[in-house]
Design a binder for these strands. Structure first.
Lengths: 195, 195
DNA sequence: ACCTGAACACCGTTCAAGT
DNA sequence: ACCTGAACACCGTTCAAGT
């Protein structure tokens, strides 16, 4: 099969490569946004990003028509890693071990990138690249669940959508409680999923 | 024991009863805020609330020094119900059944009141009433967990703080996935908590 | 084509002036 | 004491004008 491999520097809609200066400007905006996120500012004000990147506000809106689109662009890189991890997990030797590992990886990615956590939790993708990544994730997790069911490693009624929602819930629980409880909460969820 | 029973009409800090007109104004603001929340506006703009309640902005700030304080005032009523439910659960006959019932009740309250969900997830209370409710909840859940451990109904390392964080995670998972999965997710969490 | 930034609407927050 | 609302700073979003 042939999953799209979107990268954070992809243009918003068309498949043409960006002109060099446009790509540079785009990268500057993403860097500025990431710096604000890293600094704990979860708001991502468009005006502030424009100023920090040295561009006009209109340019931010041209590249990212909404804050959601910006968040998805920021999350794209890690989202791709997560999809890779899911595909490897679906193909790994011991499926129960793979499920456990994937849960931990997903949690790490979400805790390491608030943009990814937000994107996984949103009901609808703003950018087609994000939709493609979501579908690739679903496909990989479906494969993993199929094998896990056959091996009697998981309750049969669990779907890929459940796994995604439970990823999000797990991330939220750890955010509320603190990083120290990360492994214990993963364990609780894993036990809850077992057949 | 003697837990404070804060009600949403309590004044922000002192214990003196409010003057009649002040209490009326306060109730109007809370009503206006609730209407906006019910209408799906999760933002709770102070200016808009002031206008809707027919008071000056300064009055909103006088009663609720921060948006968090406003959220906590909105959540107080349901928070009280949740604490009651936890205390009844801790005293109920079959402790495993009580734990399951409490989980469901907490989820219902959080899904029915976004303000409560936000307040349960916040690390620090803005108002003393909220802190008192939080402590009462912890005490009741501790009692419940003590009995559940003795009955071998729950993993021994689970604490009241865990339960609170997992409440929040469960709520988030259901919000991401949709109400239809509510009972299944409660089941997953319960299985994960079992000894 | 792409970028700029002024312009307008709106919200957060404060505080001098009113009752 | 308590309330009012003007005032200032800031952010979202659009769009006419520039290159």
């Amino acid at each position: 099969m042939d999953y799209p491999r979107a990268v954070s520097t992809d243009p918003p809609t068309n498949a043409e490569p960006l002109r060099a200066d446009s790509a540079r400007v785009r990268a500057r905006m993403l860097r500025a946004a990431r710096e604000r996120l890293a600094a704990g500012d979860t708001e991502l004000p468009m005006n502030a990003i424009a100023k920090a990147a040295g561009v006009g506000v209109g340019t931010v809106y041209r590249h990212f028509p909404s804050r959601q689109a910006l968040l998805e662009a920021l999350a794209a890189e890690r989202f791709t890693h997560l999809v890779d991890a899911a595909e490897q997990a679906a193909a790994g030797p011991d499926i129960a071990t793979e499920l456990a590992r994937l849960l931990r990886t997903a949690l790490d990615h979400q805790l390491g990138d608030p943009a990814l956590a937000a994107v996984l939790a949103e009901p609808e993708a703003a950018r087609p690249e994000t939709r493609a990544l979501g579908q690739a994730l679903t496909t990989a997790v479906d494969r993993l669940l199929h094998r896990a069911r056959a091996a009697g490693a998981i309750r049969p009624e669990i779907t890929a959508d459940d796994v995604r929602a439970l990823f999000c819930g797990l991330q939220h629980a750890v955010t509320v409680s603190g990083d120290a409880d990360r492994d214990r909460y993963v364990g609780i969820l894993l036990r809850g999923l077992r057949a």
